[in-house]
Design a protein around this nucleic acid. Structure first.
Lengths: 241, 241
DNA sequence: AATCAATTTATTGTTGACAATATAGGTATT
DNA sequence: AATACCTATATTGTCAACAATAAATTGATT
């Protein structure tokens, strides 16, 4: 136990912002649903003031959309918008890898390997479901952008795009068919980073994400045959990068 | 004259957000300075409620930084942070060009040319100062990302990075030495877009911005000789892209 | 029965007051 | 004189009430 009254460093708006963000990206608050201020303020036991501030910050993450005199509603991403995100993500994470390859130490690469190994074990112990359901694959991408050392890049990916990706995954209940291929690609990326080959690391990551985007274009188009074909064509690559 | 009382579609927080953003990126509110709520609320004639909401939205644009129980302060970018922005901008605008090349119509390219011509005339009539002082060069980049059709990309560049660039320019009172070279590069980029050569357009834009970043590394390092050398090496390229 | 208008209800926008925290200033002590 | 502590001031955080707008309901008319 700690001392009972430590001076709190966070504000109510901060706390409810975190809680709301989690509630949104986990689907607890349905995509497209309206954000009702009186209801939420009662639910979280705070007044509307800090709640509204939290909502304004959620708007900054692009998780809700505001309209004057109408209120906020949780974003709902269609496939087109998801593809736009993947296009942006491809170049940003390519940059991540290029920078990471130039800066990563031996210990950093060890951490990357450990992360992949750990994920592989989780996969084997749960038939490949838990890893992606629990967003474990994002950990890998998350660590790389950290290693890049570019804080602006980190902010854009981890402060915005990854949350939107999680939202889209829960929204579409999408799960990759076979993560095995994704693991291989991940290891190849670490290989390149380990060798300090930024160009190759960038290329591999961009290809990795481009493959995932390609799956989006077909798998979720409602055309089952096209989806199967794309899956074959991409050699069982992960659907979500 | 219009009818005196049209139903207003914007809220106080929206208006003061726009005004504050302009005040920040023009340097009217100094970088690094503290944001005083009582003062600003009096200055803009509103209460602290909507003002605080506007500040939270400014935080979303990364124009202010918030600390609990202390308040907001306007961001102040150092060279390292500016370089990070340029690294991100390089790949994002490269993507802009690649996509724009695939989608731009003949009319779109005409608009790009007109914009460049217009800017060139402004330069000649004002010794090259007004164009960059008034951020006219960003118009060019702005239009290209619009043509890309990727709204997420547009949001990231025009909703965040460009504002930060303006802030950095006013903060460092930086002006490119000779925009002539930048114009040539701009025209070459339009050439590639016009020919539908996305790869080339991407390459040229990335190089264009990489050159500007390189100027940053040297011109503002306090080492005048290094700055001059870099300027020669980059063949009088614009300093700010 | 359907459509439009008026009324009611609910939600958002805004305000001023109060509480909690941090900052500034002053006093005493070493 | 410098530091630590206490006090006073200012600023931020939070709340509840009021105003303005939008949404829902009711009723009248065709």
């Amino acid at each position: 136990m700690e001392s009972p009254s430590q001076p709190k460093t966070s504000t109510l708006a901060d706390d409810v912002f975190d809680q709301l963000r989690i509630a949104i990206v986990t689907g607890e608050i349905a995509p497209g649903s309206k954000v009702n201020e009186p209801q939420l303020s009662k639910q979280y036991g705070i007044s509307r003031g800090p709640l509204r501030e939290a909502i304004r910050r959620l708007e900054g993450c692009k998780l809700v959309e505001l309209k004057a005199n109408v209120g906020a509603k949780v974003v709902s991403l269609n496939r087109e918008q998801a593809i736009e995100i993947y296009e942006v993500r491809e170049v940003l994470e390519g940059l991540s890898c290029r920078l990471a390859a130039a800066k990563a130490s031996t210990e950093d690469c060890t951490r990357l390997r450990e992360l992949l190994t750990q994920h592989e074990q989780q996969i084997q112990s749960d038939n490949g479901r838990r890893y992606f359901q629990k967003e474990g694959d994002l950990d890998f991408h998350y660590l790389i952008v950290q290693l890049s050392g570019n804080k602006r890049l980190f902010s854009m990916l981890c402060g915005e795009l990854y949350h939107l990706l999680r939202l889209y995954r829960v929204q579409t209940s999408s799960e990759p068919s076979r993560p095995v291929r994704a693991f291989k690609e991940h290891h190849h990326i670490v290989d390149a980073i380990e060798q300090g080959d930024g160009e190759l690391a960038e290329l591999l990551m961009k290809r990795h994400i481009a493959n995932a985007r390609q799956m989006l274009l077909t798998t979720l188009s409602g055309d089952a045959d096209a989806a199967d074909m794309a899956q074959e064509a991409s050699s069982d690559r992960s659907a979500m990068g």
